[in-house]
Amino acid sequence: MRALHHRTLTFPGPAIQGLPQPAFSVGGLEAVPHHSGALYLPSERALLLSDLHLEKASSYAARGVFLPPYDTRATLASVAVAIAAFEPRQVISMGDSFHDRTGSLRLEPDDATTLRRLQAGRDWLWLTGNHDPDAARGLEGEVADEIALGGVMLRHEPAHRGAEPEIAGHLHPAARIRLRGRGVRRRCFISDGNRLVMPAMGAYAGGLNVRDGAIQRLFDDGADVWMLGDARVFQVSRTLLMPD
């Protein structure tokens, strides 16, 4: 079993305001998980966002299911919180940024403005995902299928090959614990120190329990879990993880 780095550091950035953030390392890269679901890489000044699934509601509307059309602004609001917390130099959206191929063309004008403001003054990279193989059509930002950052591969779907360090999304990990008769189910980060799977940030994105085979098979030797709380991230004991 790999030894993991468990330590708490106080990030020196202006917006952290003294709150200790748990941090860990993925393939040697320092990583700070945020309760919005974003992940900050201090050495690269990069903020990673995964599975935003923007315009999911409007995608359903075409099928006659009228979910409240506010998912895009709700999701962008939590992206804004994460950006304000870390003031990153670059932002990488790790795929499935939009729920379908034409999602980026359906953005409401207000939401498009919000997104442009978030993008202003920093590099923005859209990775492609299975829902949005063309990434964000007609929007600012670069597009790539995958990218290496500080020796770690970033891609949408976790690759099943090799020991190459990797950060991915796609699986929407969520964890459930039960204590004293009460259960809490939250989205989470899951990592074994070499590979990390990010939680989905989309307001209407569901979650897959980390005990599910699709996630388990990525982590043969076990993994640690950081659950998203309302005000911070909590690393929870894996002995408490429950199936749904």
């Binding site: 468990h6 004293r180 709380g229 002995t239 408490l240």
Partner: peptide, 23 residues
């Protein structure tokens, strides 16, 4: 009966505490 209690974050903090003790 099921016991009702505090907000989710309090419960998560407790779960974190358990991990620290195990460590």
């Amino acid at each position: 009966e099921a016991v009702y209690g505090e907000a989710a974050d309090t419960l998560l903090a407790e779960a974190e505490e358990i991990m620290m003790q195990e460590a």
